[in-house]
Simulated scan of single mutants.
Amino acid sequence: MVKRVKTAVFPVAGLGTRFLPATKAMPKEMLTVVDRPLIQYAVDEAREAGITHFVFVTGRNKGVIEDHFDRQFELETTLESRGKTAALEALQKDLPSAGRTSFTRQQEPLGLGHAVWCARDIVGDEPFALLLPDMLFKSRRGVLKQMMEAYEEIGGNIIAVEEVPHQEVSSYGVVGRGEGSDAGFRITDMVEKPKPQDTPSNLIISGRYILQPEIFDLLADQPRGAGDEIQLTDAMQTLMHSQPFAGVKYEGQSFDCGSKVGFLTANVAYALDREDITDGFLTALGKLGLHTALIDGMKIAAE
């Protein structure tokens, strides 16, 4: 029987320089897709998958993330006194239970591998999920839930992957595919940003992981890699020598909200899913001069 995964780690210490000046005083993880912060979507995904402990690896000027996952009594009292019951219930539903959140600091920007290592004492000797909040997924079942189903069957380490055009692999970490189905196949190789002619596949690592605690020992001694940072992929490549890794080609659509185009696309996609604003949103787009055929296509996509 595999050990249950109860803890999720969220690296939220990044500076968000691609979204300056918006992120000068506000964490990029608090940027909203429609009306929910990116970090809330990631936490919602983890909760759906059965996670009960949420660990945030923060940096300076990230206190608003901690505040977001805390009660605000003045706001709650005001909503209650004004009879805004639905808004109050929505706020309370989003909150993790008392004592279920932990916050630790990554005091230097030394890369994703270092951010994960900073959570070692909180996670302890247990498997854990790792979710990068920049990556937002729109799917019937959450991506982490799909991964949990594979993990409960085969254990080990699990990585969510998706296909990209062959010529784009040099922008990503790529895995080699062995035997197994899309719901859980053996990973035979892991390469960071390969040239198209050298890539083992066109399946890229997509920002969701289930990892065994031995990764922490490797990260403690991991030399700096690309970008002079401690790379998680380098440590995973080493761990592959002693532990199995499996890939899950998830069902759903991804949005790289670390880029402006991905972030704006996510806002459009999620707005089209909202019954309370879809019609008004499409009307507003029409007033901007969007071609009628394009708007009709958006309506079909929303359905």
Rank of each mutant, 00 (worst) to 15 (best):
M1Q: 13
R4H: 11
V5R: 09
V5M: 03
K6L: 08
T7F: 10
T7A: 06
R18T: 05
L20E: 13
T23Y: 06
L31N: 07
L38Q: 03
Y41L: 11
A42Q: 02
E45P: 01
A49T: 11
H53K: 13
R60L: 10
D67M: 13
H68A: 08
H68M: 12
F69V: 14
L75I: 12
T77A: 14
L79K: 00
E80Y: 15
G83C: 08
L91H: 09
D94H: 12
A98E: 14
G99V: 11
P109T: 05
G113K: 06
G124V: 00
G124A: 04
L132W: 00
S139Q: 02
L144K: 10
I154W: 08
G155I: 08
I158M: 09
I159R: 00
A160Y: 00
V161R: 10
V164W: 04
T188Y: 09
T199I: 09
T199P: 03
S206A: 14
G207Y: 03
L211S: 04
F216R: 02
F216N: 03
Q222M: 15
Q222Y: 07
G225H: 06
E229C: 04
A235L: 08
V248Q: 10
K249I: 15
C257Q: 07
G262K: 09
A271E: 08
I295H: 10
I295W: 05
D296G: 01
